[in-house]
Write a protein that binds this DNA or RNA. Structure first.
Length: 291
DNA sequence: TGGCAGGGTCATA
DNA sequence: TATGACCCTGCC
């Protein structure tokens, strides 16, 4: 049993028997709607707001019944997965051992598909603070205001709301040229052309191809969606940082722009035949914070 | 003040 | 398969 959960008063307390880090998980660029709040983080996912904190081995989901935890948050944070075994499996690689010493408590989240698709369309050619700002503005403009114990918050806009939105109003939220991608992708979800459930039964490459049929979704964004939402643990998003780290560690220090994405993909498959996505996240987080 | 990169994607040739 | 344009912000 990787994690055990109990109800304590109004809270659900999850006891970790491993090295889980809430902070590293929420700040590793997988998710964009969590902010520091009191001793932990405050976030909103779907219609649910949550204040969550961690002290040592205890993770506290404040004002959260255990049935809500088991019905949603457990899966969202991948608390039902055995990360101890994953880490043990990856110890054959000395670079990953170093990365795990630094940020081994990261978990790959399984976020709602729709929110993840739009968030990562916005992420293209962009930086994290700005991505967060754009999502907040879109939510304030097109989401629903809900009252929570922490004040009013806005839900992520529905596909219907964004599909029906005036494109200039989408752009006014700071999306830039991504406004059109957002509206068209929203339309694909809203009219039922795109059904997320179908991805689960597909292999990684078929699922990626299907996601890339959406406007604004290229290979990298598709892989992020597969890894941070769909739970495809073999997805391996290759961005500029991963390119750099893969070249420096596994391609004899060749320069990043001299090696094709295909080559890096092949090396990743060879070096990380299992849990490639977790390896990617470890290396990415390690290199971003140690260079 | 101006130039440029920032966790890419798309259209064009 | 390889280029260049694309919106916007903050940093140097």
């Amino acid at each position: 049993m990787p994690m055990t959960a109990t109800q304590r008063g109004n809270d659900t307390v999850v006891t970790c028997d491993d090295v889980f880090s809430l902070k590293d998980t929420l700040l590793s660029g997988q998710t964009f709607r969590w902010r520091p709040y009191e001793d932990g983080f405050l976030g909103i996912v779907g219609q649910k707001a949550l204040y969550i904190s961690q002290i040592g081995e205890e993770v506290v989901l404040h004002n959260c019944e255990i049935c809500e935890y088991e019905g949603f948050w457990q899966r969202y944070f991948s608390f039902d997965e055995d990360y101890k075994a994953m880490r043990a499996h990856l110890e054959y690689d000395p670079n990953l051992v170093k990365a795990m010493e630094y940020c081994g408590g990261i978990r790959l989240m399984r976020q709602p598909l729709w929110e993840t698709v739009i968030s990562f369309i916005i992420s293209a050619n962009n930086n994290i603070p700005r991505i967060m700002g754009i999502i907040e503005k879109l939510s304030a403009r097109f989401g629903e205001k809900i009252s929570t114990p922490y004040g009013d918050m806005y839900t992520f806009p529905t596909a219907e709301a964004l599909a029906a939105a005036d494109i200039t109003e989408i752009r006014a939220c700071g999306t830039g040229y991504r406004d059109d991608y957002i509206k068209k992708t929203a339309a694909a979800f809203a009219c039922g052309d795109f059904v997320g459930d179908e991805l689960c039964g597909m292999d990684r490459y078929s699922a990626r191809k299907r996601l890339m049929s959406l406007q604004g979704v290229g290979a990298k964004v598709a892989d992020c969606i597969l890894l941070f939402s769909v739970g495809k643990e073999d997805a391996f998003p290759i961005d500029t940082w991963v390119r750099k780290v893969m070249c420096s560690l596994y391609l004899d220090g060749q320069t990043a722009d001299s090696v094709s994405v295909k080559r890096i993909e092949a090396v990743a498959e060879e070096r990380f035949p299992r849990y490639a996505g977790f390896a990617q996240q470890l290396l990415f987080h390690y290199i971003r914070n140690n260079t």
